[in-house]
Design a protein around this nucleic acid. Sequence first.
DNA 1: TATTCCTGTCCTG
DNA 2: CAGGACAGGAATA
Length: 166
Amino acid sequence: MNEEIRFAFGQTSLGTILVASSNQGVVAVLLGDDPRELVGNLKDRFPKASFVSAEREQALVARVAAAVEAPESALDVALDVRGTAFQQRVWQALRDIPSGATVSYAEVARRIGAPKAIRAVAGACAANPLAIAIPCHRVVRNDGTLSGYAWGVARKRALLDRETVR
DNA sequence: TATTCCTGTCCTG
DNA sequence: CAGGACAGGAATA
């Protein structure tokens, strides 16, 4: 394989973001505090790929960053989602969640036809490499509380605050 | 409220 | 290949 992945950084009110793309589309959108940390994260997820810092990705980063600041606007970029069949099913279901809404893990499990596989759904969310593009932050516990978030519960809460209609 | 079992996937030995 | 860990939930006492 030894595939080439292009990436670039951006700044949002939530911190630094990294957007990485293959020839097929975006493979990862990562959130963090430090660019160095994000690159390390990216390499962990795609150990076999080679990475190129690409200026022309800045336009793409800008679109994703805009989606962070204004979640109600749709983010229509090509995605190259990698994962098991189960994970793909979960992530597809997540993309159907409208902005401003939240869904429980049980609800997601029911939608993908595995109502008992709640913990598996949580695992798939945790493994989701596409922050924002796949709104795993809209998945909360059955009682409405936030449990965890791969990039920090504080960011999860901030995102939900921003898109919740009051 | 606390315990226990269930669940699908990934990670480690 | 086996065992444990996980961003949960429901049933039981």
